[in-house]
Design a binder for these strands. Sequence first.
DNA 1: AATGAATGAGCTTTCATTCAT
DNA 2: AATGAATGAAAGCTCATTCAT
Lengths: 218, 218, 218, 218
Amino acid sequence: MSRTLTARGERTRQRLIDAAEVVFGRQGFLETKITDITAEAGSANGSFYNYFDSKEDIFSVVISRVNERMREQLDDRLGPGATPRERIEHATGQYVRAYRTNAQMVALLEQVSSVTPEFKAARIETRRRYTARNERSIRRWQEAGLMDASLPPRYAAEALASMVSNFCYMWFTMEADFEEDLAIHTLSRMWANSLGLEGFDDEPGGGVPSGSSSAGLG
Amino acid sequence: MSRTLTARGERTRQRLIDAAEVVFGRQGFLETKITDITAEAGSANGSFYNYFDSKEDIFSVVISRVNERMREQLDDRLGPGATPRERIEHATGQYVRAYRTNAQMVALLEQVSSVTPEFKAARIETRRRYTARNERSIRRWQEAGLMDASLPPRYAAEALASMVSNFCYMWFTMEADFEEDLAIHTLSRMWANSLGLEGFDDEPGGGVPSGSSSAGLG
Amino acid sequence: MSRTLTARGERTRQRLIDAAEVVFGRQGFLETKITDITAEAGSANGSFYNYFDSKEDIFSVVISRVNERMREQLDDRLGPGATPRERIEHATGQYVRAYRTNAQMVALLEQVSSVTPEFKAARIETRRRYTARNERSIRRWQEAGLMDASLPPRYAAEALASMVSNFCYMWFTMEADFEEDLAIHTLSRMWANSLGLEGFDDEPGGGVPSGSSSAGLG
Amino acid sequence: MSRTLTARGERTRQRLIDAAEVVFGRQGFLETKITDITAEAGSANGSFYNYFDSKEDIFSVVISRVNERMREQLDDRLGPGATPRERIEHATGQYVRAYRTNAQMVALLEQVSSVTPEFKAARIETRRRYTARNERSIRRWQEAGLMDASLPPRYAAEALASMVSNFCYMWFTMEADFEEDLAIHTLSRMWANSLGLEGFDDEPGGGVPSGSSSAGLG
DNA sequence: AATGAATGAGCTTTCATTCAT
DNA sequence: AATGAATGAAAGCTCATTCAT
């Protein structure tokens, strides 16, 4: 499935990927039939197999693209003058918006990863990459005496990633009703509180919880 | 499917439900075929339809039973002399253990609910019931001046349920490696911290974050 | 595929096997579609898979049945008073008639065995079993001084099996035109001649070329 | 498919034929896909249809080429001074070696001819052409009083072609294990014996059983 | 009630062949 | 001539569900 393609071929392949994203989003992984994808793309049944081996194959391409998009959306960092609280709020806001944009696909990955071992592994890895960033921040803050030293960083990082990501899951996928500014503000405040960052609010230049906001899959 | 059954019929029905739980747990919803269930139950293929309409039908029965079990496991409350921190820790411990015991089934429901609208609604409802308890506690604590009054109770309750439940999900379903006592302690401490309960630790009789923490599905 | 069947099941299974033999004979292995078999048997497409895993599966059942039939047809031996020439002629006649009856299926097995390793092995084994009988006869005759001692028994046995079986193949499958009595007589005579049995014709009780005539698949 | 080709076209066509022989030999007729041939030839999928109508079409070209080759390999005759036994041995040796060289293709044709009526006819015709040569020899020998006059020439010729060709089939295609010199010698001796050529061994200038022995397809 | 056979819609995948460039 | 993308008819197989006993 990696023979080089002509321009036309590349176009068709893209059409199929776009179609797949639409259909996966609409029907979920399992309810998506190859036929649905080709129909959506306006090509013949058999054309699918000129480009992909299986539904899993195209799904992983779609997911990669979504991850890429989310990574970009989470990339903006505040400058060095910002306070930790500002940083947390900024990162949380980014995360929430990125999640909202891609909610369907993120939920989809969740759904699939609990079934297919291959995707489960990928999903765990992505999550690990992002909690690792949280963990480093926490470690730094603890070394700097900025927060509760008794919290084990890895555990705390996982807990925070859980809080934000699952909140978004309930919000965007399970259709709980929240107001954006208030949600971001509340999550940010609870995040800071939970680590015992209170009292350090105005110290600029603290570590960044940042990507903390576990892209896409946190 | 609810006509009254003879004793024999009732026994067969139970055998099928037991078998279904085993098989669902082993193979997941989709990989479970009706024949797998009847084989496990030691009855004939066709017998299934004497008691259930479909795979969804028996699945919902299995899930109800699991929910029932979890509710019981989360029901033990501390007496009136306990401090809020003790209560939080107690409830968190209960939740963690209940989750662990039923992790397979909880994950299963998660998986299914993102696919089938019917189960999605049920899952939302269960979650709502439990966050509602958290929410009431928070409201009470705020009225009693025991915690940060600026946090909107519904949002905070959802965030805390997310933190604990998704932590357990990563732990028991995605096989992250945590140590039980430390995990419970850390989650409890972050829970209390995040609400700004510090300084109130020793006030006995506060509300109970409790099993509140969303049974089975939080 | 070996669960015990009820009478009805057994009947259906037999219907499918009968149908398969007809269709295989008519269309060959490759041109036979599962649908053709079920149509011929008058049952539904899916019913096939209640009894067989695949086309190969049912084919091997059909072939076994044919082998069985041929073995029976080749089983009649002459009494002890017969001369070698009589024995050879008798055995050749049997072989020719058995081949004719089952020509379609024998050719089919030949066709399939050159493609599918599994059937190739089976086919070689059957052939080996029958040439082994020829070989033993030849050895005995040589020890008894009844024939040309310079012919290596295994080679000679293979050559004779080839002569008769391939003659029949050309005759019944490739539609060469021969007259039965003359064919049998000629083959018998050449068989005896080739071994140098001339001059011993009238000695009664010699070894039996017999099943020599490689049943079904020689 | 026989419009005149430019030099380039002719080269491409040859490349395809060469590739086809390789691939047919490697994978058999059925497992050979058009794409396998073009891939082996290093040209594009669609190019195939510039030169051939179908897989059958190119197959018949390949087979013709193989037949041609075999005919050449069988063409060497002994001079007039040779005895019949020498001639038979010489011709048998030639046949065995030619078969060995082309065994894959010969088996292939056998396989295909039992399926496709078109190739079946061609195969019968080729066989007939070569047994006809045997038959003429036998007739000549009988007229010259050199052998058993009671054997009907056409029947005997068919039997001998069967003996040698099917022996080779078992040897080279079904992987029976024989030693070359001994095999050739045994087959030759049995050939002569079966016709009752004994006692005439040393008469030079007898007819030639010859390459007669059915090229390629005997 | 219990059984297990029968059914057929539904989906995936392959690949010879055609088409447009 | 050469290319490689596009096509869609087959065919196999699964399995929930219905039926007959």
